[in-house]
Design a protein around this nucleic acid. Sequence first.
DNA 1: TCTGGGGTCCTAGGACCC
DNA 2: TCTGGGGTCCTAGGACCC
Length: 307
Amino acid sequence: MSILQSYSPLVEQLSIDEAFVDVSDLQQPGIEIGRQMQNRINRELRLPCSLGIASNKLIAKMATNVAKASHRSASPPNAILEVPAGQEADFLKDLPTEALWGVGPKTAERLALLGIHTIGDLAAFPEQRLGKLFGKMGSELSAHARGIDNRPVIVEHGVKSISQETTFSSDRADEGVLKRTICGLAEQVGYRLRHKGLCASTVRIKIRFSDFSTFTRQVTLSQPTDQDSLICDSALDLFRRIWQKGQPVRLLGVGVSGLDECVHQLSLWDHSLEKERKLLSALDRLRERYGKDAVLRGHSLRKKKDD
DNA sequence: TCTGGGGTCCTAGGACCC
DNA sequence: TCTGGGGTCCTAGGACCC
């Protein structure tokens, strides 16, 4: 990411290893900048990387995918492809609908029922009908199929949610194990919140049973929090709403959303909360220095034994 | 192709308020 | 007290992406 930022401040990190870079203000042609970036990443990081160069994010992303797919050898792809401005629709037209970024198996299936198989088919389909059939997604789909994408490169992407989940090696029905697992997950979520200086207003749990059926439940708190114990208590309340004694569980997850910077407003009788906060920050520091498992709370300790 | 562990965004219904 | 319209917030689930 810092290599990319040395070319332009307009870098939008898309995932752990992908980003959009807006180089439209630079004087050099995009393909040359792309080659330079690729060379530096190859050389300085000893990593392969693929790039797409285009007039918008959608086409740049898809050019990358097409470049990677056309790479035929055992070595990792280190491809580069430019789609010149004006040729977006032409570049897309013969690709299958599923290749369109944002179209997955479900949407592709629905489109196929309408006789739409390629992105070209999609571009030719009346936009109004798509809008009626697919709602907001329909009109976006239509524009994207014609190579139109006006989304800007956004530098800052604040985190929207934080979650931790775990799948048991074998399904568990023991109430103690399940509850301690939930609180362990809540602690990890709390730690990540405090690390980022964020507080969450919504707590969510996810539970998957042996038959793979999956349920989520969420609550909005009266006050945003970054405290393990509050996240854990809320998560346990939600857990009790869906779990019946003896039911084997395959997966448990705890998540938070509604994130914002913490405002620690202390009411007159909140001394115990303040003590808890100090304890947590001491624990956090110990973990940062000696590792995640350096200090464990009572329930986490018992969980280790269960495992 | 599936699994696992993260995420984002959208939809739809209900509650509530003006 | 009821009706209607519009807006916001909350909740649950689903589609999609890496």
